[in-house]
Amino acid sequence: MWGRKARQWRVMAKEALNRTVIVAKFLSFLHITNTYICFPTLVYGPSMLPTLNMRGDVLLSERVSHRLGKVGLGDVVLVRSPENPRKTLTKRIIGVEGDRVIFMVNPGSCDVSATLVVPKGHVWVQGDNIYASKDSRHFGPVPYGLIQGKAFFRVWPPDAFGLLEQ
């Protein structure tokens, strides 16, 4: 009788170990995918109107392009805020290194424009809604190293499901 119970415990322990290994592999796969390849993000607020909804969109962003230097004009990117490293901003790239950017200083309140050449290793980012966006007009060109990903696909809301337009 004890031999039979011992065998049952061994079978159960082996099965538990196998399931634990499967769960660990799955969690490792999720971690690697989220850290190095692709990740979901919730984006909300008025700065990217009308491209993105004010109440929130769920976007898929990939982490490969910016590491290979493959982001450019018109791309929607996730950028670590130069002013608050705990915040991530979603903006559109308006200028890359060497581009001359003409931008409105305080749009809506005065018609003053400024011109700047984007320095090497930086990008100029702005929200699509320039009247409600804190972007490069406020904190200057963003170092390439602060780009966290390039948004490419909208998952939510369902009526806007699909690739993001440039």
Rank of each mutant, 00 (worst) to 15 (best):
G45C: 10
L60A: 02
V123A: 00
A132E: 09
L27E: 08
V96A: 06
V11D: 09
L68K: 00
T20I: 14
L59R: 04
L17W: 10
V117A: 08
Y36H: 05
N84W: 10
V118L: 06
V125S: 02
G140F: 01
A13T: 11
L60E: 03
N106V: 14
M48L: 15
G98A: 11
R19Q: 11
T35W: 15
H31P: 05
V142M: 02
K25M: 14
M12E: 13
D128G: 01
E165V: 08
V125H: 03
P85E: 07
G98S: 12
D128L: 10
N129G: 02
P50M: 13
N53M: 15
V96G: 00
S136H: 00
V112D: 10
Y36Q: 01
G127M: 07
P143M: 11
T115C: 12
G72A: 11
V105A: 12
G95Y: 02
D75N: 06
A160Y: 14
L163I: 07
H122Y: 13
D159K: 06
M48D: 04
E83L: 15
V101W: 07
V79T: 06
F161M: 06
L42T: 05
P85G: 03
G162S: 03
H31I: 08
A24D: 12
I37T: 08
T90F: 10
M104R: 04
A132Q: 10
R80G: 04
L116E: 01
P158T: 12
P50A: 12
W124M: 00
P50W: 13
K120Q: 13
T20Q: 13
L89T: 03
L163F: 08
H66R: 04
S113I: 15
P40Q: 15
I147P: 03
Y36C: 04
L78S: 06
F152N: 01
F139S: 04
K150L: 11
V23R: 02
K134V: 07
S133T: 04
R7V: 15
G45P: 00
R19E: 09
G149V: 12
L17F: 12
N84S: 07
N84Y: 14
K25L: 15
K14P: 01
R154E: 02
N34H: 10
D135Q: 07
F39M: 13
H138Y: 12
S65I: 01
V76F: 07
V125T: 02
C110F: 15
P107L: 15
S28F: 13
H138I: 11
F139E: 00
L27A: 12
D75C: 07
V43P: 00
V142H: 00
T41A: 11
P157V: 10
L30T: 13
R63Q: 14
L116V: 01
S61W: 10
R10P: 06
F153D: 04
G162V: 05
M1Q: 14
G127P: 03
G127H: 04
R86M: 09
K120W: 14
E97W: 01
W9T: 08
A13G: 12
L163K: 02
A160N: 09
E165A: 11
V96D: 03
I93M: 11
Q126R: 03
V58Q: 07
D159G: 05
A160W: 13
N84P: 02
V117S: 07
R154W: 07
N34G: 09
S65R: 02
T88R: 06
N129S: 04
P50T: 13
